[in-house]
Design a protein around this nucleic acid. Structure first.
Length: 286
DNA sequence: CGGGACTCCTGCCAGC
DNA sequence: TGCTGGCAGGAGTCCC
């Protein structure tokens, strides 16, 4: 599902309602998602105050006042929605059958709300970690650099790629190197940089090419966050509205359409790499 | 070790 | 209309 921009959009949507709120009760409606819920999960959350909402790569991190952190990964189909007390809004596209977790909170303004986690495919998971051990938790300890800031440079990319023979597409999806990219934004970033997804990562030694890729990655991620995520298919922002970045895809899911690069004249192709779809223009991506 | 295949699960869509 | 097969944003595990 959600790649980094979508998770950041979720975080920003939940933040004003959840920060400063008190968890009243937690309804855990099944024993597991992808993994079992932590021991005594609901009871460990009860009566805690939510201090802050953070994000690391595609993980949402909810900091509680006793030092406990909820680490939430949305998998491919996970989403959160907010149900404000007294509101009649109902998102008909969501099947309550897959509302696996309901966090009842008392907002800092005293009103009530419910934070509902819905995940049809249950590829998402939720684990707990103490704040002091967050960085060493297996879920996040091996993650690479965030693609959102200056830390991601062409020089760093060239270093990370080394002499790897794997294709650029596969290497960019490796969360241990760059953390937060998924299938869509890798396709988009490679197109923007004019680089072929099948090219061996280790051949990206020219500084101009590495710089172009670093810039393309940072740029596409920043634009997607600014647009509120892409919200493919049934993925929605926490208030139920659709994100807009999906309308800006240049190559993703555009097989057979003209390459949007001015003057290129190529056609977007779809190939399969590591069992996943890659969309690109063989004419201008080298 | 690097790299690829496979797997978990449900929903959706195209094609018959 | 109803069924079936293929495909989907992720990532841990296993195998060569």
């Amino acid at each position: 599902m959600p790649e980094l921009p979508e998770v950041e959009t979720v975080r920003r949507g939940l933040q004003p309602v959840m920060e400063g709120a008190r968890i009243v009760t937690v309804e855990q409606r099944r024993p597991d998602l992808r993994f079992p819920f932590p021991e005594r999960f609901a009871r460990r959350l009860q009566n805690r105050r939510i201090e802050a909402l953070g994000r690391r790569a595609k993980y949402l991190i909810i900091h509680l006042d006793d030092g406990l952190c909820i680490i939430s990964h949305l998998g491919m189909s996970g989403s959160y929605r907010i149900e404000m007390d007294g509101a009649t809004h109902h998102d008909g596209s969501k099947n309550a059958l897959h509302d696996h977790l309901v966090i009842h909170i008392e907002r800092k303004d005293g009103g009530a709300a419910r934070i509902v986690y819905n995940d049809p495919r249950r590829f998402g998971f939720i684990v707990l970690a103490e704040a002091g051990q967050l960085d060493s938790h297996p879920s996040v300890s091996g993650l690479g650099v965030e693609p959102t800031g200056n830390a991601l440079s062409g020089a760093l990319l060239a270093h990370l790629f080394g002499t790897k023979k794997a294709p650029l597409k596969a290497v960019l999806l490796d969360q241990r190197l760059i953390a937060g990219l998924g299938n869509i934004y890798v396709c988009e970033a490679l197109w923007r940089a004019g680089l072929s997804p099948v090219r061996e990562a280790g051949t990206l030694t020219a500084p101009a090419e590495a710089d172009a890729l670093a810039f393309a990655i940072r740029d596409v991620i920043a634009e997607a966050i600014a647009a509120g995520g892409s919200s493919l298919r049934d993925h929605r922002q926490t208030d139920g509205t659709l994100g807009y970045f999906q309308h800006r895809f240049s190559v993703y899911d555009r097989e057979g359409t003209p390459c949007p690069r001015p003057g290129c004249g190529g056609t977007i192709a779809r190939i399969v790499q590591s069992g996943r779809s890659t969309f690109f223009c063989a004419r201008c991506q080298r």
